[in-house]
Design a protein around this nucleic acid. Structure first.
Length: 426
RNA sequence: GCGGCCGUAGCUCAGCAUGGUUAGAGCACCUGGUUGUGGUCCAGGAUGUCGCCGGUUCGAAUCCGGUCGGUCGCCCCA
């Protein structure tokens, strides 16, 4: 295939992002980082691509699948264990604590668009290097924060063309009065019905009982339909918090589906848990997910500091938002300079440069093509105007300016090209 | 990490069950028809170690094994 001239390929599970798709990709990123997120007060943050391994072991949780099986971990020359970040929240919290941002105004609102790395079996919508867009609001446990964060993610997805469904749950907090006690209740129920469970699910009772809710085995599903759900076992504070979050979302007109089975895969999640799902993603139906992580700061050695955030998969957004036409769609070229002959070629490059200095998008032929080929390329470039320079124009210091869509053309002085082009744009 | 399917020009694919001269098509690309004007039309042109390694055979794109990659499902998650 493409390896005809090279022995190298991108590593398994990684992708080269090429035009025209890269235009769409850039558009999705800029809508988030340039518009929607900052418009709600979220400032950009960029943390290192690798961290000390302990940040994830202690932040995300050594027992989680991601930390246990999927991380790219390697020693540096000093023997320190480093890890390519598999997710964005723990590094953001680490940076916040390191720089004492929690001593400033709260909540601290941050947004990122960064590559993440997990060594999994690649599939549609699941790659070893993938980009996540996320926001974090740290320092407030007020339900309005939950509602704000969830609404921003929802509205952003709609703006990209995804039609998300919001799944919502509360998984309480770790104490016995709340999730801790519920897990015991659930385990007792499951042990009671162990013979009715599908054999492959029986082992989960002790390892991760919540996951039995996700089983695809018919036998297990019947059991789980009658199983106790966490929403009935939340402590008063967590229940009240969740009530308020739901009420606020309803106020904002955000529809959601309560899903008592919804669990998050990373250990730091508490209370509000949510997921945005969409079609078009094959077996990966989540475009993004998030939740509250009120214990994360402390597990990284910081002070008690509640927080909530989400992460969205850029690749999945692009997949779920359907096919857009590519090509010149994202091209900012306004003028294509056509030159006839060597001398005109020099003038063409000069004109192109002058226009570019004024921030006008300009392209021109660099292949020595004949005029016919240049005109074809002009159309292909997406330019509005073709600026033609031949012997006659050279002599009179003029340019033939042709409107490519309409076809009409006229001679204008070289100095006036920028002015005319800018007029047409406004 | 486990299982199913797939791998021929830049792209989409035919050819492979019955191995046999220079491996094809459409699209895209380049040049010319139009000595200075684009999306149509016509003529011509360039492009592949048939994913890679090995085996069977006088001979392999075609049969066999391995490997790498992709894809779908499991798992996990964004």
């Amino acid at each position: 295939m493409a390896e005809a001239t090279s022995a190298f390929r991108a590593p398994k599970g990684t992708n080269d992002l090429l035009p025209p798709d890269s235009w769409r990709w850039r558009e999705v990123m800029e809508l988030a980082m340039g518009k929607v997120f900052p418009a709600a007060g979220y400032a950009p943050i960029e943390t290192p691509i690798f961290e000390h391994t302990e940040v994830f072991e202690r932040g995300v949780g050594a027992g989680s699948e991601v930390v246990g099986k999927q991380m790219y971990t390697f020693p540096d020359r000093a023997g320190r264990s480093l890890t390519l970040r598999p997710e964005g929240t723990a590094p953001v919290m680490r940076a916040l604590l390191e720089h004492r941002l929690e001593r400033g105004p709260l909540p601290v609102k941050l947004a990122y668009a960064s590559p993440m790395f997990r060594q999994e079996r690649p599939q549609k919508g699941r790659y070893r290097q993938f980009w996540q867009l996320g926001i974090e609001a740290i320092g407030s446990d007020h339900p309005a924060t939950d509602a704000e964060v969830i609404e921003i993610g929802f509205r952003y997805l709609v703006r990209t063309g995804v039609t998300p469904t919001l799944l919502l749950n509360s998984i309480g907090h770790l104490e016995r009065s709340c999730r801790g006690g519920y897990l015991e209740t659930l385990a007792v129920y499951l042990r009671d019905r162990v013979d009715d469970l599908a054999p492959e699910d029986r082992g989960r009772i002790d390892t991760n009982p919540l996951r039995t809710f996700d089983s695809k085995e018919q036998a297990t599903r019947l059991v789980m339909d009658e199983a106790p759900v966490i929403s009935d076992h939340l402590c008063d504070a967590c229940a009240k918090h969740f009530d308020e979050v739901r009420s606020l979302l309803t106020d904002l007109g955000i529809e959601f589906t309560l899903d008592p089975r919804l669990v998050r895969g990373l250990d730091y999640y508490t209370r509000t848990a949510f997921e945005y799902v969409a079609g078009g993603l094959g077996s990966q139906n989540a475009v993004g997910g998030g939740g509250r992580y009120d214990g994360l700061s402390e597990s990284l050695g910081g002070p008690p500091l509640p927080g909530i955030g989400f992460a969205l998969g850029v690749d999945r957004i692009v997949l779920a938002s359907g096919d857009r036409e590519g090509g010149a769609v994202g091209s900012p070229v306004a003028v294509y300079v056509v030159a006839l002959g060597t001398e005109a070629g020099r003038a063409a490059l000069r004109l192109a440069t002058e226009l570019r200095r004024r921030d006008i998008g300009v392209d021109l032929d660099l292949m020595g093509r004949a005029m016919r080929g240049q005109m074809r390329d002009a159309v292909r470039s997406g330019a509005t105007w073709a600026a033609i320079i031949g012997q006659q124009e050279l002599e009179s210091k003029e340019v033939t300016l042709k409107h490519l869509a309409g076809g009409e053309q006229r001679r204008v002085a070289v100095d006036r090209v920028a002015e005319i082009v800018l007029e047409g744009e406004s």
